[in-house]
Nucleic acid binder design. Structure first.
Lengths: 147, 147
DNA sequence: CAAATACCGGATAAATTTATCCGGTAATCA
DNA sequence: TGATTACCGGATAAATTTATCCGGTATTTG
């Protein structure tokens, strides 16, 4: 559905959000990669994208790391994360790969997938990172496999 | 959403279906690739998968080519095509990449994506290649871009 | 039977995605 | 100020996906 990069990006930002909401704790890369079970260096690349897009905040040096500001917690949606990493392909492109699929010239599944895509967009648009962080904090959601 | 291979596979099988329904016309690779605007050799690989899976029929030699039997037209669903090419990843896997995402240990978006995935499965399960071929035949759907 | 046709299947190459490495820079702290 | 910490960013490598090539085999037709 999403690329690996995007999966890591979503999980990472939710974890960062959880720690930020929890007494404003800043988290380092090593910590993040361990907690969401992702490759450290690759996760760093993905986080750089999110930082550049203004969706995550980073601080260098000792006591540095990644965090979400109160505003980021409140306003950053999953949709923004996905767009920053994967672009709009999955959110807008034709399921059958037609370059211009529209009501004028629809693929045979245009309207069926329009409905699915609408629902996907709705889910991504209406969930903030902060909200999902809360869910993880309350033990109602997980970011990696616990055996 | 789907891989390129899968996009080609779906478009190709619908086109084959359309020609088969239309006076049982068998179609060759060159023809298919031209009609759905896909790379010929790669499309051949994808079609081999579908033939091996029993979803498409092929005939060698002159006057040979690909076709869908009456039964294939009636019974083969998009879901079977997608499974044969992309496997169950998109249809079953966790959107956030967790190896075992379930009600026992759900990702923070488990139930939201469950709904989306259900709808996707439903669309793929309830549409046969033959039905979509009819839609294309009636000019209600297209398999490539016509400028 | 011989020639032509068209799918089959293995090998190979190009492109993209995923993943790693390492020196550079900014920030903290003693 | 000097040492350490931790993100930044470019280069590189591995893995996967996408795409191509070409000889092999089955089938039709003359």
């Amino acid at each position: 559905m999403f690329s690996k990069a995007c999966e890591y990006g979503i999980r990472a930002s939710i974890y960062i959000g959880q720690q930020s909401a929890d007494q404003g704790r800043r988290v380092g890369l090593r910590d993040i990669a361990a907690e969401i079970d992702s490759p450290e260096a690759f996760t760093a690349k993905v986080l750089q994208l999110l930082v550049r897009a203004g969706l995550v905040t980073s601080v260098k040096g000792p006591t540095g790391g990644f965090e979400l500001t109160a505003e980021q917690l409140r306003t950053v949606t999953l949709r923004q994360i996905v767009l920053a990493i994967d672009g709009g392909e999955m959110l807008q492109g034709c399921a059958l790969g037609l370059r211009q699929c529209s009501a004028q010239q629809p693929c045979p599944l245009h309207y069926q997938f329009l409905a699915i895509r609408d629902q996907l967009n709705e889910v991504l648009r209406t969930h903030t990172v902060g909200e999902l962080a809360g869910k993880v904090h309350d033990g109602l959601g997980f970011l990696r496999q616990f055996s």
